[in-house]
């Protein structure tokens, strides 16, 4: 059979895998909702949790679709569809694919049509290199979590602080990341421009461009505060505060980028 990256059989294979992953999500959702009824949790709260999670997911999921489109130009549609539905991310898949083809003395994006052999190599490198989490959770997940629940019994207050500390640790790293390009302000030359390398391309950007993420973050944080104030009057705001802040922040990036670069 002649191979090409958008062969219908590849769509079928990817489709089967995506269906299995979808089934796993549905299975765990149903299992958790059933259990919540058994232990008598308020079902209106459960419904709200589902609604909020669904609404919140839309914008990040659209961003993933954009990554699928970007990758599909060199790899065809079925593989990015599969890879970004299961584990992957745009940057990881790009690096894995580049490493796989450069090992064959080729350059990704400069290949007219991938052969079946090149394709198999790319898929194997992508799949094997990112597999750790899928099997490691079954191996150590139970031990890790029973350690946590032992701690809960021994010192409940510390267990709660520990949980909050982990969340804050993660959030702090991303807050730091928001400021990572601010040094462009003092690295800019006399014309106020700075030369940067982004995803293999050399770009000339205004020194103020490092402020864009900071402004976006500030708008998002402010929106969250306003939602917090407004929810005394409109209770539904509480449920959608995070998705609203996310979308308002993203929308503000358009004028900020036009203004600051």
């Amino acid at each position: 059979m002649e191979f090409y990256v958008n062969h219908p059989l590849l769509f079928i294979l990817a489709g089967v895998l995506v269906a299995v992953v979808l089934a796993q999500s549905v299975y765990f959702l149903v299992k958790a909702v059933r259990r919540s009824k058994v232990i008598g949790m308020d079902q209106t709260k459960i419904r709200k949790t589902i609604q909020t999670a669904a609404v919140f997911t839309v914008a990040p999921a659209v961003a993933i679709v954009i990554s699928v489109i970007a990758l599909s130009k060199s790899l065809g549609l079925p593989l990015p569809w599969l890879r970004l539905s299961v584990v992957g991310s745009l940057s990881y898949e790009t690096i894995a694919a580049e490493n796989a083809v450069s090992a064959m003395d080729l350059t990704l994006g400069k290949i007219d049509a991938l052969t079946a052999q090149q394709y198999v190599n790319i898929v194997l490198v992508m799949t094997v290199s990112i597999m750790v989490g899928i099997w490691l959770v079954p191996v150590i997940g139970k031990k890790l979590l029973s350690g946590m629940s032992n701690l809960e019994h021994k010192d409940g207050k510390w267990a709660e602080i520990l949980n909050n500390a982990m969340f804050i640790g993660m959030i702090s790293a991303f807050l730091g990341y928001v400021f990572c390009n601010i040094s462009r302000l003092w690295l800019a030359d006399e014309s106020g421009m700075v030369t940067v390398e982004e995803s293999g391309q050399v770009l000339r950007l205004p020194g103020t461009s490092g402020l864009v993420p900071v402004c976006v973050m500030a708008v998002s944080a402010l929106t969250m505060v306003l939602c917090g104030l407004g929810m005394k009057k409109w209770k539904w705001l509480n449920d959608y505060a995070l998705p609203i802040s996310l979308v308002v922040g993203m929308a503000s990036a358009i004028p900020f980028t036009a203004w600051l670069g």
Partner: peptide, 14 residues
């Protein structure tokens, strides 16, 4: 700018 927009809202709350 999705990540700054996400962690701005999440950060201020937490």
């Amino acid at each position: 700018q999705m990540l700054p927009a996400l962690f701005g809202g999440l950060g201020v709350a937490f």
